[in-house]
Structure formats: C-alpha cells, structure tokens
Amino acid sequence: MSSPYILVLYYSRHGATAEMARHIARGIEQAGFEARLRTVPAVSTECEAVAPEIPAEGALYATLDDLKHCAGLVLGSPTRYGNMAAAMKYFLDGTNSLWLTGALVGKPAAVFTSTASLHGGQESTLLSMMLPLLHHGMLICGLPYSEAALIETRGGGTPYGASHHAGADGKRPLDEHEIALCRALGLRLAQTAGQLGERRG
C-alpha cells in the first residue's frame, strides 16, 4: 500500500496559482505527508479538453484515482468572474463516479485562488470551489485568525482559504503574508488529515 498523500489539485494559466500550490505543498510536507501536485487540462469553449495527454512542463494531469486515494485535497483555481476556471469545473463535473461510491466522504479539503485585482472575487471563488467538495461529503478546512498573516496581509488571504493578488499581468510575486498563509493552509489540512486517519485507524 502506498504512503498517504495530500492531493494539491490546481489549474494555472499564468503561473501564480501554480506558485501558490508549491508553497501549500511545503506546508503539507512540514506535517510529514507527501504532497502530490496535479493539474487539469485547459478546455475549449465547447468544454472539451484541448491539451496534450501529458503536459510539456509542470505537474501531471490529475486522474480520478489521484482523487479517490488521497488522504486530503487542496483545490486551487484562478478567479473567473468570481468563480473557478472552466477547466477546474469541467474536471469536477466528471467526478460523479466518486460521488456515487462516497469515495471522498469524510476527507478534509481546502481551497485557494489567485486574482488579477485585489477585490476581484477571491472569496466568492473560494466559496464556489467548496460547493462540489461539500456535495462529495468532504470536511472543509479554512484559515483561522490565529494565523497572524491573516490580520496583517495587504494582498491576498481570507478565512475561506489562501489567496493571492497577482496583478493585471499575473506577474506580481506572492508577498510574505500570502506565502505564510499558503504554507499554513497546507500544514493545517495535512495535520487534520493525520488526526482523522488516526481516528479511523
């Protein structure tokens, strides 16, 4: 049997969400879990995958098995009009076999996002990503205000999950508070997965 892992599943267009995923992975690893980074292919306006079977660079594409066997999930997407990107929604819409079998019930999950503008729908995007996870019976982990960076941030960061203000060109680097909150989210999710795993064991 393989060791337990946390799935960090994201879609990134310009790299900001991917960078957040890497910081979240460091928090997960701090808790002693493997962080398995996976992405999803872009989709066309007809909602069909329009990418090669294997990405040219970065994380591999996620499979339903990656999702089925994870000990926890961190889901990330850039904001699209206050909602998750179509590519992530398309992938989640194809998880009905996992829903039918209850494969994700009781597993912890968290969410993260990146926006072009500071008030560009970060919180509504995070909430939109929570909805399918709740339908799967997952347990949502947010960021508590005991995280000092949540009070001090001048960029991204919400109690609903980690966020980042990437700027209009998507090139603004994560600041120290955004990085701290990404890592804190990964650590908290992994610690929760560990506690839940001990109770099941």
Rank of each mutant, 00 (worst) to 15 (best):
E48H: 04
E19C: 05
G27A: 12
L150V: 07
G102S: 10
L185R: 00
G194H: 11
A180T: 04
A116N: 10
G72F: 01
A190K: 01
T101I: 11
V8I: 15
M88G: 09
S12L: 08
L92R: 07
N96E: 06
A190M: 06
E57P: 01
V50G: 04
A85S: 11
P41G: 10
W99P: 10
A166V: 08
I6M: 04
A184W: 11
H164W: 01
G120S: 05
I28E: 00
G120E: 07
H136D: 05
D65N: 08
T153S: 15
G94C: 09
S117Q: 04
A193P: 02
G167F: 04
E57A: 14
R36T: 08
S124N: 08
E152K: 14
G156L: 05
P78K: 11
V8R: 00
H135Q: 08
D65T: 12
L134H: 11
M20E: 15
D93S: 02
I151V: 09
E198M: 05
A42G: 13
L67P: 00
H14W: 07
A21M: 03
M130V: 13
E48F: 03
L187D: 09
T158F: 02
P132Y: 13
H69W: 05
R172H: 14
A148E: 13
R36P: 01
F91T: 07
D65F: 02
R13W: 04
E178C: 07
G167D: 07
S117Y: 04
G137N: 14
Y5C: 06
E34P: 02
I24S: 02
A35I: 01
L73E: 06
A109F: 11
T45H: 08
A85N: 10
M138G: 14
S128V: 03
V105D: 11
E19N: 10
R13F: 03
P108H: 09
H136E: 10
A51H: 02
P41T: 09
E147M: 10
G142C: 12
G167R: 07
G161M: 13
Y90T: 11
G106L: 12
L196A: 10
L75R: 12
P78F: 10
V8H: 01
A21E: 02
S114E: 06
G82P: 11
A56T: 05
R154F: 08
C70G: 00
E57Q: 11
A18I: 01
N83L: 12
T153Q: 08
A149K: 01
D65P: 01
L174M: 13
G102T: 10
A31K: 05
H177E: 14
A116H: 08
I151Q: 11
H165F: 15
G142T: 12
L185K: 01
L100N: 14
Y5F: 15
G157A: 07
A35R: 00
M1Y: 07
V74S: 01
Y11C: 10
A190I: 03
G201A: 15
M138W: 13
A166L: 09
M129V: 06
Q122S: 12
T45Y: 08
K171A: 13
E19P: 01
A35V: 00
E48D: 05
K89Y: 02
A190W: 00
V105R: 14
G82T: 13
L131F: 09
H136S: 06
T79I: 13
A51M: 11
L139W: 09
H165K: 07
L189R: 07
A184H: 12
M129R: 06
A71L: 08
N83D: 15
P41M: 08
A42S: 15
Q191L: 14
T79E: 12
R172S: 09
I28Y: 02
A16F: 01
L100I: 12
